[in-house]
Computed example of a mutant assay.
Amino acid sequence: MTNRLIILSASTALMATASAASADTWRYAHEEAATEVQGVFAEKFKEEIEANSDHTVQLFPFGTLGESADIMEQAQSGILQFVNQSPGFTGALIPEAQVFFVPYLLPQDEATLQEFFRNSKAINEKFPGLYAEQGLELLTMYPEGEVCMTTQEEVKTPEDLAGVKFRVMTNPLLVESYAALGATPTPLPWGEVYGALQTGIIQGQENPGFFLDSTKMYEVTEYVTCIGHNNFTTAMMANKDFYDGLSDEEKQLIQNATDAAFDHILDYQAGLQDKSLENIKSAKPEMVINILSDEERQPFMETADAVEAAFIEMTGDSGKEILEQMKSDLEAAGAATQ
């Protein structure tokens, strides 16, 4: 209750000053700690804005203004000028964004992945209109790292997930994905996950390696399993009314800062997954880390078609068009990096 009151008080204070606040201060909230990937991206964006203008950027890491749903509402209402949020949490708001959770769609090859995020027509041409319908200006999307599972019991086949209460983001397609694997998907806000694992309410969850390390998920689970099914994606957005009201010079300032932060975060992630898994093993030597072979991954990959079909059923022609464009973009990215 106390934490909730603090969050409400902070949000109320922001709301009270939002309309009167000078344009010199822009507010930016994200879903991670200041030292995690979104925090590093946000800090670089802030640095670029402040170095090239009279504006200042006030950053709000995870928890300072509530959960992911809270900061999205604040961005849509104009209390925040900028917000970072994974499509995993915007899936109910923008169903087509769930495409990033179709298993085995994104490549594991780092060069191909980065080429895709730099030049994807789906991201740069199709998604902006969908975000604009929700009062948001999509500035960029970027990858955060390969997603791995942490569980109480070893997972080598989909059958090993049968009946496992597995935490997923509040995302309908992730529910479908883990149901296809035989697990019991359990949507939970991030703030409840550690305690739920500790008490046995759930028995598993997934996140990129750096997040498993920084949030100490290894303390309440026994196995890390990497099956190559996804790379965590996030989106940086601005409140559209705010953005549309800026001068051309200010819009260019923001785009330049976004581009600089994008390049910075891709460089920052080089080797981060391996280092994070090494950190986990060092902190808890008995932790078992399994990186499945291509052969071991095949049964997991065979569930992808059902999830893709569920995505198209959820999103109709719009989602199908996005998916087809992404596949075309990924093919082009692969050809460009050969």
Rank of each mutant, 00 (worst) to 15 (best):
E110T: 15
F89N: 11
A238D: 07
E249R: 09
D305F: 02
S318G: 10
A306G: 03
M314Q: 09
A333G: 13
Q85S: 13
E250L: 12
A122V: 05
G39A: 11
F62K: 08
E286S: 15
D317R: 00
Q58P: 03
L136T: 11
I7W: 05
V102I: 15
A162C: 02
R167Y: 00
W26Y: 05
A283D: 03
E206Q: 14
G91I: 01
M72G: 00
N279G: 00
E295W: 04
E295I: 07
N52E: 02
M149N: 12
M169A: 15
N124P: 06
F82Q: 07
M237W: 03
D317Q: 10
F60I: 05
A333L: 10
L136A: 09
I49K: 02
S276M: 05
N119Q: 11
D263E: 12
D54N: 13
E47P: 02
Q205A: 14
P61G: 04
A333P: 04
L106I: 09
S282I: 12
G63F: 03
G163D: 10
V193F: 08
L292C: 04
I6W: 09
T157E: 10
T199K: 11
M169P: 00
Q273H: 14
Y28T: 00
E302P: 01
F60C: 10
Q205E: 13
L330E: 03
L5D: 15
F89G: 01
S276C: 08
T170Q: 14
E36W: 11
A180E: 00
G39R: 07
N119M: 10
I201K: 13
F166S: 00
Y223E: 00
A283H: 11
D109F: 05
Q81N: 14
Y142N: 05
V164E: 06
K121C: 06
K216T: 10
P285L: 08
E286K: 08
N231H: 13
I291H: 10
P285D: 06
E286N: 13
K44I: 09
Q58S: 12
I280E: 01
E146R: 13
E96W: 02
G200K: 05
V164Q: 06
W26F: 08
L5S: 15
K320P: 02
Q74L: 15
W190A: 15
S68V: 04
Q38R: 08
M141D: 03
L266M: 10
Q298H: 10
K156C: 04
K126E: 11
K46F: 00
D267N: 11
A132I: 06
Y268A: 00
T303W: 05
K156Q: 11
T221M: 04
E250W: 03
P95Q: 04
T150F: 06
T17A: 13
S214C: 08
I6T: 14
